[in-house]
Amino acid sequence: MHPAYSVIYFTVASGAGYGLLFLLGLQAAFDLLPAHPWSAPASGLFALALVTTGLLSSTLHLGHKLRAWRAVTQWRSSWLSREGVLALIGLPVAVAFLYGMAFQNDAGWWRALGLAVAMLSALTVHATAMIYASLKPIRHWNNPLTVPVYLLLALASGGVADLAIDAAFGDVTLASGLLGLALLAAGIAVKRGYWRSVDAGEAPSSPESATGLGAIGRVRLLERPHTEENYLLKEMGYQVARRHARRLRLVAQVLGFLVPALALAAALMLSGGVLAALALFLALAAMLAGLLVERWLFFAEAKHTVTLYYGAGRV
């Protein structure tokens, strides 16, 4: 699948944003917010920035951007619509929540909203993931681990962001650090599980089933219907060389997990201070970069069944 940068940025940024909102929501609900009064609101603002730039970016690839609002009408069947609806409901709730957190510290209502924010954030990421996971023509997406990967990577990147911001206010606890490490470990575990699964998996479809000619024998493309690239090939025929993909997977793991984990560990060892905060910002930057690579690969490695009509031996 063609890796569209706007969509890659959207899923990474909004994922991290929602992950962060989820954590803040829960922390608020259970009264676990960091001590510094500006720490959580700063995290919240950062989360909102990630989510909104992500959402805006996602409209960039639309053919008709001004009609984007129509996308919320079909929540009964469409995961994209549901994502839109959830995002639209989630945003004012999150804003109210943050407002309460920042300016109504004494009031209790926003703590209760925290639960709603957490739930809406999780549901939004889930909906995003389901857009991909529900597409049967794309085996690499139509995978049981797609949703866990999205959820966990959102949470892990949100967690690292949370830690980094907390650190800026000098608020990192050992527990939260360890939780961060655990999320990173879980994230990489399920992502690796995902890769193992797609590498080993077989698509149910083949050139033989796509053409129905399997009874005669192996099916090979002889003549394309058009000699130059068309929309289908540009959008769905994207190919990344296997060697290149392997290298990028390594980059994604190193940047997205190993570097953040090391930085986090270092920060914990430094137990606070500017250096720790710097280490955690490094962790966040590396992680987001790693996830961009990871998400690029999520698209680039995905093969659509339509390529079976254009010479692909398998998808």
Binding site: M1, H61, L62, G63, H64, K65, R67, A68, R70, A71, S78, L80, I131, L135, K136, P137, I138, S205, A210, Y231, L232, E235, M236, H304, T305, V306, Y309
Partner: peptide, 16 residues
């Protein structure tokens, strides 16, 4: 008139 050009339907169609 309603289409926003999100292309999702083309991803969902196995047959191109």
């Amino acid at each position: 008139d309603l289409c926003i050009g999100c292309k999702l339907c083309s991803w969902a169609c196995p047959y191109g």
